[in-house]
């Protein structure tokens, strides 16, 4: 099997899903953000976003912290070190998959 096909097959399916890829990409550029920010940036509905975040949390890529900002509840989200490593590996494999034949 050629290297490009191999790279495509090895892509992380958890990150490769378009909605989760969007989430992980945004989280990779920040130290942390809250649920509302991701809701606005991804334009998903709350249920959809929560579902994808739960999947990423289960894979160990995202850390979810429920806290308060004053008296207002806030959900903070961060990419874990494993999540960052997985995203970097995903980007490298994507690049390899797009390499010229």
């Amino acid at each position: 099997m050629n290297k490009q096909l191999q790279a495509i097959l090895e892509l992380d399916r958890v990150i490769h899903e378009p909605a989760r890829l969007m989430i992980v990409t945004l989280l990779s550029a920040v130290k942390e953000c809250d649920f509302l920010y991701l809701l606005n940036e991804t334009e998903m509905n709350k249920g959809n976003l929560s579902g994808h975040l739960a999947r990423l949390e289960k894979a160990g890529y995202v850390e979810i912290e429920k806290t308060y900002r004053g008296k207002v509840p806030q959900t903070l989200l961060r990419l874990t070190p494993a999540g960052r490593a997985a995203f970097d590996a995903y980007r490298k494999r994507t690049k390899a998959a797009h390499a010229p034949l």
């Binding site: 953000c33 649920f35 509302l36 920010y37 806030q74």
Partner: peptide, 12 residues
């Protein structure tokens, strides 16, 4: 800003 479109902290 944060109450309207969300909070972001940037990496040091």
């Amino acid at each position: 800003t944060w109450p309207r479109t969300g909070y972001v902290a940037y990496p040091r």
